[in-house]
Amino acid sequence: MSTLTNDPVVEQLRAAFPQVPFRPVDPGIPGLVVPLESLVDVCRYLKTTPGLEFDYLASVTAIDYLDRIDVVYQIRSLKHHRDLTLRIEVDRDESVAPSVTGVWRAADFQEREIYDLMGVTFTGHPNLKRILLYDEFDGHPLRKDWRLPAEPRSVTS
């Protein structure tokens, strides 16, 4: 945990947003769990502040923990050679999260993929529709409680 608390970017973020209740992400990884409503502001700050300039969104992904869905952002500063992980915790039933396409255009396809496979709706996304599956697909197959409607072929019987 010491490396985490000492991370200069994390410390700077905490100082810049004193009212936001950040929580640390997993030990050893520089990053923060960000409250949903602060995400876009934090991202814009990280991208535009001189000295930080996280200009590259490496990946957006999501994890189903059954009681919640986490959306994880891996961002990178190509100028300062620095990585940072942001995480938001999304209510599983509502499944609504703010879109960061306004900050990084690269989020467009990745958020569509999460919407397609995990069923998280990103508010503010310019074109939120399925990207990998066909439009008529029923449900979001990477959710852990999703089941095939009918097994087209069985290997056991």
Binding site: L132, L133, Y134, F137, P141, W146, L148, E151, P152, R153, S154, V155
Partner: peptide, 14 residues
């Protein structure tokens, strides 16, 4: 031929 390793996969034609 028959779906290969993607047995009963949600988006693969068998």
């Amino acid at each position: 031929s028959e779906g290969g390793p993607y047995v009963n996969a949600y988006n693969v034609v068998q």
